[in-house]
Each structure stands twice: as structure tokens, then as C-alpha cells.
Amino acid sequence: MTLFKLYWIFFKIGFFTYGGGYAMIPLLQEELVRRYQLITAADFGNIMAIAQVTPGPVGINAATYIGYNYGGVTGALVGTAGLMVPSLVIISIVVHFVKAFENSLAVKGMLAGIRPAVLGMIAAAVLFFAEMSVFTAPLPVNWLMSHLSGGGAAKPAFGICWPGAVIFVVALVASRWFKIPATWILVLSAVLGVILFGLLG
């Protein structure tokens, strides 16, 4: 891992993120957690959580945090620069052809495919967060796959983490029906986490 690699990872992420913050989660997870193992899944979840509650765009927050953890202030600068360069280059070109770009059938066609796929990817990100909060372990995907293909892998430990599940439901209701702003929901979730786990000992 070098600073150039860090730059390249965030450049790729900047280039393939369509539709902002949440859409970036599966890409970051693939590159940082699975492929290069720069951070653990739990740390990654924490970073995304911090990025949601601090000022500034979620993507930039995440790049800065991960870059800092890897290489201090220089790392943070390199990661953020990697994320910003595709935007700078692409928009500096597109800005000259705004009308042609907006009316382009090719662009509309690509987006018609990309938007639903991004939605599916964000739905996958929901599961990823659930694995580290509502459930006690990653979903037993390997077991399920081997089960389906007739193999007999042993079923790994998997269950529901009750405090996490309760907070999930509270946050869902508070946001959907009581329209409480996201920042306050996350503050409430943090407090509930300390209280519920404290009660359970």
C-alpha cells in the first residue's frame, strides 16, 4: 500500500459513484474492507456513521477519515484529492455541452440502467450495516450458497442482537412517522446504544 494506491482507490470510487453518499458505501466496502483490508468491517461502519453526523458531504468525510487513519494529514489529503479529481475533470468537460449532455439519449440510457442498479447496491448496504448492528454476525451467505448447491458446510453462528434491533425499529419509526431529522436520530441511537447495552451488562 502506497499513497499512490490510496489515491487510485479513491479515484476509482469517485469515478463510479452515481447519486451521492449512500451509493459510495458498497464501493468503499469492496475496495477498503475486502480487497485491500485497510480497515475492519466494524471500523468502516463507524466511519460511515461519523460521516453522517459531521458537517460536510458524506463521501468527502469518509475519504478524509480513511486517508487520515492510513497516512495522517498527508493521507487524508491524498484520499480526498483522489475522490475530487474525477468530478473536476468530468464536469469541466461537461459544462461546455450542458444542453447536448442533458438531451443525449446515450446519457439517458446509461442512467436508466445505472439508477436502478445503484438502488440495488444501496439495498445491499442496508444488509451490510444490519450485519454489524441488528445481527450478531455476517449473514451466513457461504453456508446458504453451499446448502443450495447440495454441499454440507456447517451453519455458522448467527443471531439477532436485541439492543441493535430495538434501536433499528425506534430509528425507523422516528424518521418515517415522526419526521425527526437524521442527525438527531443518530444522536438518539448513540444514547440508546449506551443505555441498552448498559442495562444488559
Binding site: 466494524a42 461502519g45 463507524n46 460511515m48 456513521a49 453522517q52 453526523v53 442496508v126 450495516f129 444490519a130 454489524m132 448492528s133 441488528v134 442482537c161 439492543p163 441493535g164 434491533a165 434501536i167 433499528f168 425499529v169 430509528a171 425507523l172 424518521s175 436520530i185 443518530l186 438518539l188 441511537s189 448513540a190 444514547v191 440508546l192 446504544g193 449506551v194 441498552l196 447495552f197
Partner: peptide, 10 residues
Amino acid sequence: FIGVRSGVCA
């Protein structure tokens, strides 16, 4: 953090 991750998930 477990709390916040549950909240983000929701």
C-alpha cells in the same frame, strides 16, 4: 457506535 450503526441502517 453499535447504536449509531443500527440508526444508519434504518
